[in-house]
C-alpha cells in the first residue's frame, strides 16, 4: 500500500511539473503544435499534388496516423535523452540521483506524464488533421487504447536505452537528430513491406493502429496472435531498455559520469 502511495505521489509530482511547464510556457507549446501541424499540412499538400488519384485517400489517412505516431515517439524516446542532457547541464540530475525513489522510477513517472500529455495533444492534432483534410479515420478508442498502451511500453523501453546512453555519453545531440529518422522508419514503414520490423519496437503497434484507424478493423478482428506478438514485443523491449539503463547508471556511477557534462 505504502509502495503504491509513494509511486502515485511520484507520478503526481512529475505530472504536475510537466503540466506547469507546458502551461507556463504556453506560447512555446502552441508554437510547437503549430509547427507539427504546418509540417503535416505540407505533407498533405505534397501527397495531394503527386499522389495517384485512386490511392490518395488511403495514403493521406496512413500519413496522418504515421506522422502523429512519429511525433509521439520522438517526444517520448528522444525527449528522455534531451531531458537528461538538460538536467545534467543544469545540475539537477544529481538531485534525482539522491532520491530514494531511484532515477529510473522518476524517469518512468516523467515518461508516463509526458506520454499522457503528448497523447492528449496528439488527439487534438488528429481531429484537426481530419477536419482540415476532410478525411475520416476510425477512432475506435476501445480497440486503439490497449494497442496504444502496449506500443507505449515498447517506446518506454527504447527511451530507457536512449536515457542510459545519454547518462554515459552526454554529448549525444547529433545522434538523437539522426535517430529521429530511425524512429520515422519504425513508424512509417508498414510490416507488410518489411516483415522483419516485427522484431523492432513500436512498428507492430503502429501497424495495428493503422489497421484499426484506416482499415476499420475491430478488437476481435485483430485477433489474439497479434496482441500476443505486440505484448511480447512491448515487454521484451521494456525489460531490455530498463536493464540497459540500470547498467549504464551503474557504469556512470563507477566512472563518475552521472552528472558530468
Amino acid at each position: 500500500m505504502e509502495w503504491i502511495k509513494s509511486n502515485l505521489n511520484l507520478f503526481k509530482a512529475n505530472f504536475r511539473k510537466e503540466t506547469i511547464e507546458l502551461r507556463r510556457y504556453l506560447p512555446n507549446t502552441i508554437a510547437m503544435l503549430l509547427t507539427v501541424y504546418i509540417i503535416f499540412m505540407a505533407m498533405f499538400a505534397g501527397i495531394h499534388s503527386v499522389g495517384a488519384p485512386g490511392t490518395v485517400d488511403a495514403t493521406i489517412q496512413n500519413t496522418i496516423v504515421n506522422y502523429i505516431f512519429w511525433y509521439l515517439t520522438i517526444t517520448i524516446v528522444n525527449g528522455q535523452g534531451y531531458e537528461i542532457l538538460t538536467e545534467a547541464t543544469r545540475g539537477t540530475f544529481e538531485q534525482l540521483g539522491m532520491s530514494p525513489s531511484g532515477i529510473w522510477r522518476i524517469l518512468s513517472a516523467r515518461l508516463l506524464a509526458q506520454g499522457i500529455l503528448t497523447a492528449a495533444m496528439m488527439i487534438v492534432l488528429l481531429y484537426l488533421s481530419m477536419l482540415t483534410t476532410g478525411q475520416s479515420l476510425n477512432v475506435d478508442f476501445v480497440t486503439i487504447i490497449p494497442i496504444f498502451l502496449l506500443t507505449c511500453i515498447s517506446m518506454f523501453g527504447l527511451s530507457f536505452i536512449i536515457a542510459g546512453l545519454t547518462v554515459i555519453v552526454k554529448q549525444i545531440q547529433a545522434f538523437l537528430q539522426i535517430f529521429q529518422f530511425v524512429l520515422a522508419a519504425l513508424t512509417f514503414v508498414s510490416l507488410s513491406r518489411a516483415p522483419f520490423l516485427v522484431f523492432f519496437p513500436i512498428t507492430k503497434g503502429v501497424d495495428m493502429i493503422r489497421a484499426v484507424m484506416v482499415e476499420g478493423l475491430t478488437l476481435n478482428e485483430l485477433g489474439f496472435s497479434n496482441f500476443l506478438v505486440l505484448t511480447t514485443n512491448a515487454l521484451v523491449y521494456f525489460i531490455i531498455g530498463l536493464a540497459t539503463y540500470l547498467y549504464c547508471e551503474r557504469y556512470a556511477m563507477k566512472k563518475g559520469l552521472l552528472a558530468h557534462y
Binding site: K5, N9, A13, N14, R16, K17, I20, Q95, L96, S99
Partner: peptide, 14 residues
C-alpha cells in the same frame, strides 16, 4: 513548486 516537486520525487504528497 520546487519544494513540492522534490518532496514528490521522494514519494511524499503535497
Amino acid at each position: 513548486e520546487n519544494l513540492e516537486y522534490f518532496a514528490g520525487n521522494r514519494g511524499v504528497s503535497r
